[in-house]
């Protein structure tokens, strides 16, 4: 990790960040090491995906970096502020969005919540009006701004949440599992918005996720955390050429036809695995064979009833990253 000396203060610097929790009481009391030691530098304008399986320490880390949790040990500076001692000043310069917690008032229209947030952040009335217009435009909110939050779909709500997070023009966005629970379309839309915020406004984006697509479509850098430690840190472009190049193709074959003809397609980088007599899963290394070629070959070989292309689960990707030569 190198820091460009001509940049201003890095967005995030963390050294030996550690946090333990106590669980249970009395004799059952146990100490849980949620975060064992995080060392990390994130430069301004980066889009970092902080990824790992459930319980890896992602949320705990992000909560320490935003000043919500006090660490057990270690130090950190976010935009130059120590988050947990300088929380109030820091919150003026960062935006935080936690997928499972709302900052909007469910009975009210987002506009009302924005008015309250504006008062809290000291945004004047005229500036607020302009800002709401900008955000409505940027996040494509349209009428949503005046509809009570409880009547909105989760995807709509998350865009409104993001607008609330962006209201005070933060330099750095922390997003904890922002796409969790969203449907495919809403996820894609949300990812595009994040990239646009970064491109157009230069906002640094730091998000946790356990969705491979979030990494691929939002981040330019992936930091992998497991068991409370960073186990890998790589540019997403590199990953795209390696582990993220692997896709899964599931093919369902019409009733009464055998899967045999597709079990060995003879294509490089394609592994077939029969799951049931009429269901075959292919692991495709798209560096060696494009998906399109696999699909063409399969469709020509057997009558296909059902077909899907998906990313492999994050656990597999992480395992692959781990095994990469460094």
């Amino acid at each position: 990790m190198t820091i460009d000396r001509h940049e201003p203060t890095p967005a995030i610097v963390a050294e030996g960040l550690r946090r333990t929790f106590h669980r249970g009481r009395g004799a059952d009391r146990q100490v849980v090491e949620a975060v064992v030691g995080i060392d990390l530098v994130v430069g301004r304008g980066e889009r970092v995906a902080f990824i790992g399986p459930n319980g890896a320490g992602k949320s705990t880390s992000i909560k320490m970096l935003t000043g919500i949790l006090h660490p057990t040990a270690g130090s950190a500076a976010v935009l130059g502020h120590v988050p947990w001692t300088d929380r109030r000043r820091l919150t003026r310069r960062i935006g935080t969005l936690f997928g499972q917690r709302s900052q909007l008032w469910s009975e009210l229209a987002p506009r009302s919540s924005f008015e309250m947030l504006a008062a809290i952040f000291g945004i004047g009335r005229r500036r607020l009006g302009d800002r709401i217009e900008e955000l409505v435009e940027l996040l494509d909110l349209g009428e949503l701004i005046d509809q009570p939050v409880r009547t909105q779909s989760l995807g709509q709500r998350m865009r409104c949440e993001l607008a609330a997070t962006m209201l005070h023009e933060p330099d750095l966005l922390f997003l904890d599992e922002p796409t969790i629970g969203l449907d495919l379309l809403a996820k894609q839309r949300f990812r595009e918005v994040l990239v646009r915020l970064n491109d157009e406004l230069g906002v640094t984006v730091f998000l946790t996720s356990h969705d491979v697509a979030d990494v691929e479509h939002v981040a330019d850098r992936a930091v992998v955390v497991n068991h409370g430690r960073i186990i890998a840190d790589a540019p997403v472009d590199d990953l795209r050429r390696s582990v993220l190049a692997v896709k899964r193709v599931r093919v369902g074959i019409e009733h009464g036809h055998a899967a045999d003809p597709v079990l060995d397609l003879g294509l490089p980088g394609v592994l077939a695995e029969p799951i049931s007599p009429s269901l075959v899963r292919f692991e495709v290394d798209t560096n060696q064979t494009p998906i399109r070629r696999v699909l063409d070959t399969v469709l020509a070989a057997v009558p296909v009833a059902d077909l899907s292309v998906v990313d492999p689960p994050l656990e597999h990707v992480i395992a692959d990253i781990y095994e990469q030569p460094r």
Binding site: I3, R5, T9, P10, V13, S75, A76, A77, G80, V82
Partner: peptide, 10 residues
């Protein structure tokens, strides 16, 4: 204090 690295860079 912010850690040295941050102070330095800033």
């Amino acid at each position: 204090e912010p850690p040295p690295s941050a102070a330095e860079a800033g």
